[in-house]
């Protein structure tokens, strides 16, 4: 029995590590993409890293997703960001993670597109809240509207990708169980 437990632990450790790796690579990819040249709005991102967190949430577990999200923010902040960007991402990631819980409540109705928009909107609200604590509440009024519209677009885009990924992942995970 003990070896079985160990197997499960090893499996979990490996899959979490893998998901974290995917999250970091996607975040880095996003960091490289010159999206700001196309649309010159600071803070606007595709939110690719969120894909890995969403996959963790629905295919590995809530705790695993929390772990992946936390460590991703920490590592990205340490490698490519500054103390302020770390603070911004942490606030965004926290609210976005709450969004996953809210979305999961409506899992019989919403697809990943609705979930993506919800999370993206909350992520941006979190970032604006972080900005508001630093620069005053004016940010909330001037910049949040812009970011909210962006989150409806990019959250939906991420959700569309997630719809495709989820179908494939279900096949893989069910094969693993039965085969």
């Amino acid at each position: 029995m003990r070896s079985l437990d160990n197997n499960a632990i090893t499996r979990r450790l490996t899959s979490d590590g893998l998901l974290l790796g995917v999250a970091l690579v996607l975040s880095y990819l996003e960091y490289l993409l010159p999206l700001n040249l196309l649309i010159p709005l600071p803070g606007m991102k595709l939110g690719l890293g969120q894909l890995a967190v969403t996959v963790s949430f629905f295919f590995a577990g809530k705790k695993d997703a929390a772990l992946v999200s936390c460590i991703r923010v920490l590592i990205m902040g340490l490698l490519f960001g500054s103390a302020t960007s770390l603070y911004f991402s942490a606030c965004g990631a926290f609210l976005s993670f709450c969004g996953l819980f809210i979305g999961a409540l409506f899992k019989k109705r919403l697809s990943y597109i609705g979930l993506g928009i919800l999370c993206a909107g909350l992520h941006n609200a979190g970032q604006c809240f972080a900005a508001a604590t630093l620069f005053g509440t004016g940010v909330l009024l001037t910049y949040l509207p812009v970011l909210l519209i962006a989150s409806a677009v990019f959250g939906g885009l991420g959700g569309w990708i997630m719809n495709i990924i989820a179908g494939r992942l279900e096949i893989i995970t069910s094969e693993k169980r039965h085969g």
Partner: peptide
């Protein structure tokens, strides 16, 4: 979660856009 777009997906989008209009 559903794996294809549903009418309910419009609700979060509508909330985002309405809120931004309000702000």
């Amino acid at each position: 979660m559903k794996k294809s777009i549903t009418p309910w997906d419009a609700i979060p989008a509508a909330i985002c856009i309405l809120l931004s209009g309000l702000l």
